[in-house]
């Protein structure tokens, strides 16, 4: 069970969104991102918000998880907010001090920016919360497969990504174990100056590298033993299948996008 956590991101429950075709989910997320940056309008953000609300409701992801995904970027939000707020020119000026100023345009842009980034993170997190990394890379491979015609090693890239993702939790677990083992021998990882701390990492990094190399070698051998020879003629255990719900979701997104574009052209506020 614990081993199923990949990247600490995927939130494995059963919902409509979880069961959706990953290819569609990626396309829809891309559309959502483009839509978010389509024009400087309240309508755009309202549509984005609606999208996130509907998607969250359908995916049964607790709101808490979305908030958690936004938390790490709060500093970025504050910085972009402040920059836009204090540096932008335009509209009515409320206050001015040297190069800092508070203008109508500044307030509006900074508010828009913050909401937009929040929506952006929430929307993309929903993709990773509802799709396991392995399926995600499969979908990316499928979407990029036209590039094979241009001699791009799409399968190899996807396989590398899959392997990298697969081993992140393993390496985290391993690091954890080695750290505990060295701590049990009195390694001090928490105190001292920068140099001391860097030095204190040696007992962790060396065993970690050794085991990573060992694992890579074993994996290569195991793959060869099972006659892995690249993507040519390879079939899949989990075939990506699209169904009615995927088309409905796509049409919903497209309609929303169309509405946003129309609002941008015809509505003036």
């Amino acid at each position: 069970m614990l081993k199923d956590i990949t990247l600490g991101q995927y939130f494995p429950i059963n919902s409509v969104v979880h069961r959706m075709d990953a290819r569609f989910k990626i396309i829809i997320t891309m559309l959502f991102l483009v839509m978010l940056f389509w024009g400087q309008r309240v309508t755009t953000l309202a549509a984005g918000l609606l999208f996130v609300i509907v998607a969250t409701a359908c995916s049964k992801i607790p709101l808490k998880m979305l908030v958690k995904s936004i938390k790490p970027i709060v500093p970025v939000l504050i910085i972009t907010g402040l920059f836009n707020l204090l540096l932008l020119d335009g509209g009515k000026t409320y206050w001015r001090w040297h190069f800092l100023k508070l203008t109508e345009e500044g307030i509006q842009t900074s508010a828009f920016m913050i909401v937009r980034i929040c929506l952006l993170i929430a929307g993309t997190s929903l993709l990773t919360y509802t799709t396991s990394p392995i399926v995600l890379t499969d979908a990316i491979e499928a979407l990029l497969s036209p590039l094979k015609k241009l001699k791009m090693p799409v399968h190899e890239l996807a396989m590398m990504m899959t392997i990298a993702l697969r081993f992140i939790p393993t390496l985290i677990e391993e690091t954890d174990k080695i750290m505990s083992a060295q701590k049990a021998r009195g390694a001090d990882l928490e105190s001292g100056g920068l140099m001391q701390r860097v030095k204190a990492l040696t007992p962790i990094l060396i065993p970690l590298f050794v085991s990573a190399f060992r694992r890579a070698e074993e994996l290569a051998l195991a793959m060869e033993c099972r006659c892995y020879h690249g993507g040519e003629g390879r079939t899949r255990l989990r075939v990506l299948k699209s169904g009615l719900r995927d088309y409905i979701a796509l049409i919903f997104t497209l309609l929303m996008f169309a509405a946003v574009i129309l609002c941008n052209i015809f509505v003036k506020f």
Partner: peptide, 29 residues
């Protein structure tokens, strides 16, 4: 830390934690 010196714990597969240049140095860690 003092507790860990008094209660020594050898992990599973402890050989994966060896890191020093010599066995002597590793035991001395």
């Amino acid at each position: 830390r003092a507790v860990r010196f008094q209660v020594g714990l050898v992990f599973q597969y402890p050989e994966y934690q060896l890191f020093e240049e010599t066995v002597y140095q590793d035991i001395a860690f």
